[in-house]
Each structure stands twice: as structure tokens, then as C-alpha cells.
Design a protein around this nucleic acid. Sequence first.
DNA 1: ACCTGAACACCGTTCAAGT
DNA 2: ACCTGAACACCGTTCAAGT
Lengths: 212, 212
Amino acid sequence: MSEDSETKRQPLKSYHHGDLRNALIQAGLALLAEEGVSGLDLRKVARRAGVSHNAPYRHFADKQALWAAIAELGFHQLTVQIQAALANSAEDPGAQLTAIARSYIVFACENPALMREMFSGLTIDRFAYPTLYSASKAPFTITVDVIQRGQTGEVIVVGDPVYLTVVAWSLMHGLAMLLIENQIPEARENDDVVEELLQRCMQQLYDGLMQK
Amino acid sequence: MSEDSETKRQPLKSYHHGDLRNALIQAGLALLAEEGVSGLDLRKVARRAGVSHNAPYRHFADKQALWAAIAELGFHQLTVQIQAALANSAEDPGAQLTAIARSYIVFACENPALMREMFSGLTIDRFAYPTLYSASKAPFTITVDVIQRGQTGEVIVVGDPVYLTVVAWSLMHGLAMLLIENQIPEARENDDVVEELLQRCMQQLYDGLMQK
DNA sequence: ACCTGAACACCGTTCAAGT
DNA sequence: ACCTGAACACCGTTCAAGT
């Protein structure tokens, strides 16, 4: 929440509060959590940050650019949570993949509006916001690594690790998005059911769906 | 496109063109396809339908209600395509699941903005737009049926068919959403890669990820 | 019933100006 | 450099009124 420990130290307080860019992003995150995607507007964000309605234009070309910066921070937060989960997980690649999927889904359920914003079409043109685009790929890259290590240890089947990662990522992403869209009403407000769904998804992925 | 063959017959032409409600939905679909989600606004939709900017309020409580109606039609179109694909597919449950997934992904890639609108949070409160919510579950229900038939024929593993469907649906939904968000750049504008990804997803789902 | 025109509050963006 | 106030075009919604 307060990432400005060193910038605050200097008495530079240039005109307003030293780091308006960050203040705007934080205000946007807060509004997203409180009011959802439809509550996000530029003037409201500026008001919340305590500046006039066009101060943001000093830091962002337009509304979309601020939205992109918010989404980018979302991807960084998600990546941090995934890495923390991996650090606390067993060496077993199966357990690691499940840990990644669990972080992904917990993050989505705790930040549904942010998650929607992150996957709202901002990265369609992947060169429009290059830092957003590359931030969005970090979870993918982490998963590729885990799968490669699993293959080296002969725990995971052979095959192009990128393709295998697309499969695993699609599964966790789909479950996350269906959950926040409330398409699986049994799981609404019920963490046990969410965990059960996660377990079943991963188990089916590991074992396969077909009768052997 | 033209679903008004019988309403046009009568000379009822009440005031404007007999079925404004439908004309507004069609105009919205067209705008969505042409300009994306951000191009959707109520006044523009009304203009395109040839009516004043508040005529829509005779048919929809507010902007969201029209958006919900558009999303609902999207789910119906998706359902029709899935059913058509199933009708042309072999009896084999594996082939049928792949056919469902292929329709789902082709629909998403051909209508990315509509797909985003369909899963944009409108169904979070699943009682806000009940017909939208029930329309959104049709693909799920169809998949449950296929899986149940596969279990009866002892081709698909035993287990709660609803849970198994959540797994399969998450996988196809996740792949579809990642594709339209351009998170898998190799697949951009390349139908062969999309088909390859689909095949790998389904194969991995059927066979399992782990070394046996 | 169904549609229109005027009106209001509000948003995104621009511009000239202030420190 | 960074911020403000006025201005413009536009949107969502409401209301009184027209056929």
C-alpha cells in the first residue's frame, strides 16, 4: 500500500504530493475494489487523489493509459502472490502447479473488478502498452519453468513445455473467470467449494478424463 | 439477421418500425463488432436504429438492460453454433467434447467484443437479469449431457458429471479468453495454431498431464 | 403505446493561464 | 515541471409534451 518510503523522505514535495502518478494508480485500485469497473472514471480518480480533474494528463496520455497502468500493477501483484505460493510449496511439480492455480484463483476472487480490468481487452494490441503486455506474461513464464523442471524430473509428460503451459493456464484462467462471473453459483461465497473445484480441475488435468 | 418476417407482414407499423427492441439489439451487436466494447453507447445505438436518443427507454430500463439483452442474444447464438457442431459430430464423446470446445473458441475469435461483453460482469448478480443468466448456462448444460452419455457408455471416467463439466468448460473458456485477449501471440491471426492449441488442450485433458 | 425535444448533471479532453 | 479553471462536445437519464 505505501511504496513511497524513500520518496517521502526528501522534502521535495514539488507542488503536490511528490508522486501523483502512483497516487492516481492507488486511487484507481481503491475505486475498482469499491465500485467495480463501471465506477472507474478519470475525474473521480483525480478527486480521490486530491487534484484537479486534468492533473492526470501530466502523467497519462489519456484514460486508457491510466487503466493500463492499473492493470499492470494488478499483474505485478498477481505475480508476487504466485511467487510467494511457490516459495511455500513442496518441490513436487504437481503441488507447485496446484499452488500456482490456487494463487491465481484466490487473487481473482479477492479482486474480481481488477481481474476483469486486467483482461478487458487492453492487451489486444500487445504493442500499445508494452510494459502491461510483458507484465501480463509473468505468470505464464513462471508456469513454463515449473513444467520444464517437472519434465527434467520425469514427473511430467514429454512435449513442448509452452504448449503444456497453455493447457494448464487456460484451465486455471477459465476457472477463475467463470468464478468471478458467478457462472458456478454453487461456489458463490463458499471457499470450500472453490477449493474443491480447484482440486478436481488439477486432478483431472493430471490423470486425464478418459477411461484407461 | 432478419428475424422479423411475421411482424413485418402485418401493416401495424405502429409508429416506427414495429420492433424497435430488436432493432436496438441488432444495432448494438453491429457496433460491438465494428468498434468494440468502448464504442457501445446508448445514443449511438439509438442513432443507428434511426430513433431519438431516449426512445430506447421505452424498451429497456437503462443502458445496462440493453447491454444484458445483447449479451443474452450472444449466448443464444453461441448455443446454436454448439448445437450445430454437435449435430455434425461423431457419436464418440471425445469427438463431441472437442466439437463443443471448437465452436466455443471459434465463436470467441469471430466475436471477441461480444464475447467480452457476455462475460463482463453482467451476471455477477445472477438474479439481476434472469434470462441472461439462464441463457449463459446453456453451453454448460449441453456439456453435462455429453459427459453423462460418455459415462453411460463407459468412455468417460466415473464421477459427478457437473464437476467434470466445470473442468472441461474452464479449459475451453480459459483458452478462448486468453486467445481474444491476445495473450498467446503465436496464435494471432493464425487459425492453424488455434486448432493446434485446441487439440493439445483436449488431448491433455483426455490423457492427463502426468507420467503414468 | 410509442416517440420527441429540451434540460441537467456529469465525463473526457483541450487550452490558456498560473506558480 | 506541475497544477488549475474555463470551455467544448458528448453521454445517461428524466420530464413534459406530442401523435
